[in-house]
Simulated assay, not measured.
Amino acid sequence: MSALVTGAARGIGAAVVRALTAAGHRVVATDLQPPRPAVPGVPGLALDVRDTAAVIAAVARAEDLAGPIDVLVNVAGVLRTGPVTGTTDADWHAVLDVNATGVFRVSREVGRRMADRGHGAIVTVASNAARVPRAQMAAYAASKAAAAHFTRCLGLELAPAGVRCNVVSPGSTDTPMQRALWTTPGGAAAAVAGDPAQYKIGIPLGRIAEPGDIAAAVAFLASEQARHITLQNLVVDGGAAL
């Protein structure tokens, strides 16, 4: 089986590449710049999910390299924080274009191919911020909510063709994006404890996630073990969203 992963250069995307490779998939990893392989031998392609022509070309190239795509994992994402009243049109559009419209572009191109073949699995990595309001993160939260609901709507349309579409929604995860939010050396501890001033509760399980925790959930939903699961949103956040 073959798999295409976006946003695969680091963090959750790189962990997904490792998990799917370990599960026996022929993986093609993509990012803005061709990612260094998280696993030796995994080909990397440059892909800007904001560019429809680039998406079409990258999907075709991925199938040349690894065969018909059986699994698509949408991980590519960006984060811009700040109050809504200080968010520019450019900031808003930049976040939505990658996190939501990028998922649409890639899923549309891969989904039509999967539907023609009568099988496939699409997993979108969203965020628990799509379910719980977050101060200073409105654009990001809105984009992830859009991506999650789009993926489930796509799953409803593609179910008759045998294509499953699901969402994994992480909470705080030890990635470069998460670390960029930490303003003190104790950032992980602060995430676990919560921040009443930002209306964030803590994490009941007492730790932030590792990228592999998220990748394991993705790999499960992409596998035959989940063959009767579609239209679902699996929250992997240690209980933070309650």
Rank of each mutant, 00 (worst) to 15 (best):
A147D: 05
A145F: 05
D174S: 06
W182A: 09
A148F: 02
M177A: 13
A189D: 15
P185F: 07
G186N: 11
T173R: 13
M137G: 10
T173S: 02
Y140M: 04
V168C: 02
T184L: 09
A180R: 15
P185W: 00
S172I: 05
G155Y: 00
R152A: 11
R164K: 04
S172Q: 12
N166C: 13
N128F: 12
R131W: 12
A188M: 04
V167C: 03
H149T: 15
D174F: 05
R152S: 04
S169V: 11
G162L: 03
N166S: 14
A138H: 10
N128H: 10
M137N: 13
A147Q: 02
R152L: 12
A159F: 04
T183P: 06
A141K: 04
A190E: 15
R152P: 10
A147E: 02
L181Y: 08
G162W: 06
P133N: 01
G155S: 11
V132G: 07
A129F: 03
L181R: 14
L158D: 04
Q136K: 12
G187V: 04
P176K: 14
T175S: 09
D174K: 10
A190W: 11
A135C: 12
A180E: 13
P176M: 14
A138I: 12
H149K: 06
P185M: 09
A146H: 11
M137F: 13
R179C: 12
L156H: 13
A147N: 01
S169T: 01
F150H: 04
V163S: 03
W182G: 05
T151P: 12
S143Q: 13
V132S: 11
S169M: 09
T173L: 07
G171M: 06
G155P: 00
T175A: 02
A147P: 02
A190M: 12
A147L: 08
T183A: 11
Q178F: 14
L156A: 15
A180T: 08
V167H: 00
P160I: 04
P160S: 09
H149Y: 09
